[in-house]
Amino acid sequence: MLQQFGFTQYESQVYQALITVDEPLDASAIVKRSGVPRAKVYEVLHRMTEKGMILESTVEKKRMYTALPIESTIEKLKADFEDNVEQLRNAQIKETPIDDRVWTLKNNQSIQSLLKELLHQAKDSIIISGWADDLEEYLPILEAKSNEGLSVNIHSIGSLETTIPSVSTLIPDTHHETLERSRILIIDEQEMLFAGIEETKWQAIRSQSRPLVKFFTEFFYHDVALTEITQKYKTQIMEDQDVRDVLLKLRY
């Protein structure tokens, strides 16, 4: 019952034994109802009392126990969780030297959370590319950063409604068979994140490596340049079979 909230199995068993009976119990009764060994039960009861999860009283020289009511327990767990989150948020962040290692990350939610965190950390410039329906999630942060005076450059696959002036938009053609979902983020010309889909799952790399930051910056402007060229000379390109085939094989 309580293990998913960080309690031990014995603590959970003791709480469940107490909450499911409408009367106080002594240690012997708790052992019978919970299955916790007698040699461990007093230690567990002491911990649960210290955590405020059970109440204790002495009746006729016998120590009796009862559980904190369910609704009170829920409120306590919520409050404890919020306190832990706040402590984590206020934890001192130590300054570290440039980390040129390449870190990998899986799971789309984790990648999105990290991307947002990096956006919040940006102080001078942001370069970001992705699909419009994906980029929309980050627009509030991007527009706020742009309003603060940061240089924000976006390359969007699909139309994106935004007040940010520097947006390059590629409207996919039916012939773009190799066009893949991906995200590129470079902040302050110092750190990059690249995410793509491999075997239906999102995976990402993150690094402050100068060569990689430079490579993905140039890769971003490569996409922007191809987009502008394709839009400006679309008629000529589509009429030239060789040129069209080469362009449509590119990732952008």
Rank of each mutant, 00 (worst) to 15 (best):
M53V: 11
E136I: 13
G52W: 15
S113N: 13
I111N: 06
E95K: 14
L114M: 12
V102N: 00
I70E: 09
T66E: 09
D124E: 10
E75N: 11
L119R: 02
W103C: 04
A79M: 10
E60C: 04
E117G: 11
L115K: 02
I128Q: 00
P97D: 08
G130T: 02
E75C: 03
M64P: 12
I98S: 13
E137A: 14
A79E: 12
E86Q: 11
L77S: 02
A91M: 14
Y65M: 06
E86N: 09
S72W: 09
D80R: 12
F81S: 03
A67K: 01
D80Q: 14
Q87K: 15
D133H: 10
E56K: 10
S129E: 00
I127Y: 01
A79R: 15
L105P: 00
E137K: 14
Y138G: 00
A79Y: 13
I54A: 00
L105K: 07
K94Y: 08
T66R: 10
Y65Q: 10
T66P: 00
R101E: 14
F81Y: 01
I127L: 13
Q87I: 04
E86D: 07
L68H: 06
G130W: 09
N107D: 08
L115T: 06
I128S: 00
L115A: 11
K62H: 04
T73V: 08
P97Q: 04
N90W: 09
Q109T: 07
D80G: 07
D80E: 15
V102C: 01
E86M: 03
W103L: 01
E56N: 09
Y65H: 07
T66V: 13
V102T: 08
I98Q: 14
I98H: 10
E60K: 13
Q121P: 03
L114P: 04
A67H: 03
V85S: 02
E86T: 06
S129H: 09
R63H: 12
Y65I: 09
W131S: 05
I74M: 07
S125R: 14
M53E: 03
S72R: 15
T66I: 15
E137P: 05
I93H: 12
E82V: 05
E75H: 12
T58S: 03
D99M: 07
L68G: 02
Q121D: 06
L135A: 06
D133V: 06
K116N: 10
R89N: 07
L105I: 02
L88Q: 01
S110T: 07
L114Q: 08
A79K: 15
I93D: 11
P97W: 01
Q112V: 05
F81N: 01
I126M: 06
L119N: 02
V59R: 08
Q109R: 11
E56P: 00
G130K: 04
K76F: 15
D99G: 02
L135Y: 05
V85E: 10
E56C: 07
N90Y: 11
A122Q: 02
T58M: 07
I126T: 01
I93A: 14
V85M: 04
T66N: 06
Y138F: 13
A91R: 15
A122T: 05
